[in-house]
Amino acid sequence: MKSIHTVKVLMKRELISSLYGPGIYIAIFISFLSSSFILKNYLDSIREDNISISSDPLNYPLFISVIVISFYLAILSAISISRERDQGTLEVLFYGPVSCPSYVLAKYFKDLLLYLVVVGFLFVYFWGVSALTNLGFSYGLVQAAFLSIFSVSCAITFGLFISSFTNRVRSSILYLVGIFLAFLAVQLSHTILLGMPEENMPSALIYLGNTLSIISKGVEWVSPFSYLSRGMDAISLGNPWLYTMNIIYCVIYSAILLVLSTLVLERKGVRG
């Protein structure tokens, strides 16, 4: 009961601080700017072709918005623990009734609640876009927005995990960006090699392709962004089973990383 109260107090304090800061609004603005760019291109393509057939034309812009916000929240959570450790406030905090699980949970729920605020903004933006352009605000878009809560949860816990074993803000950001770039490099090179005909490929490239295929499969389960892209895929397929399974995977992923973050924090201690 005491832990729940601690989580609530920590979460409230940090949430208010984040809402009063400019970061979240700038991140939402950048995400909407990216979506507007895609939407404008889409409308231009309809203007050129005079016709476009789609069930959820706003889903891809939403996907881009969520990716931008996820990245921001992942960085925010990646620096959250390391910053307090770096500044020494973490040690001070732990003299009080704060335990490692309650601290990690408070950080997690703060970022998740922050994303729920973002979801509100997303609904306003896409409703406005639909009214402006007459592109359909579909059930698929609501499904995608709901799914995004779970995939963003994966990004937050990933950031927290990185933060739990780093001592400095700079190293947290470097680790996070480095890992994401590595994921991207694996996926990109795998896609390039997949497009090449195996028949005429030298054996070195065939081995590289096979290795990348295995690594890429692993990345699909580790990278938090893969969960969002798989979920969006399930919506476009109209497959409720895949959609539900993806949400369950997100919950399991988040739970595992929360436990790991707590364990690492306990082992590493508040001083690093």
Binding site: F29, F32, L33, S36, K40, V124, Y125, G128, T133
Partner: peptide, 11 residues
């Protein structure tokens, strides 16, 4: 479509 960018400013 020209209003899409200005609309992004609301956050």
């Amino acid at each position: 479509s020209k209003y899409l960018y200005p609309f992004s400013i609301f956050p």
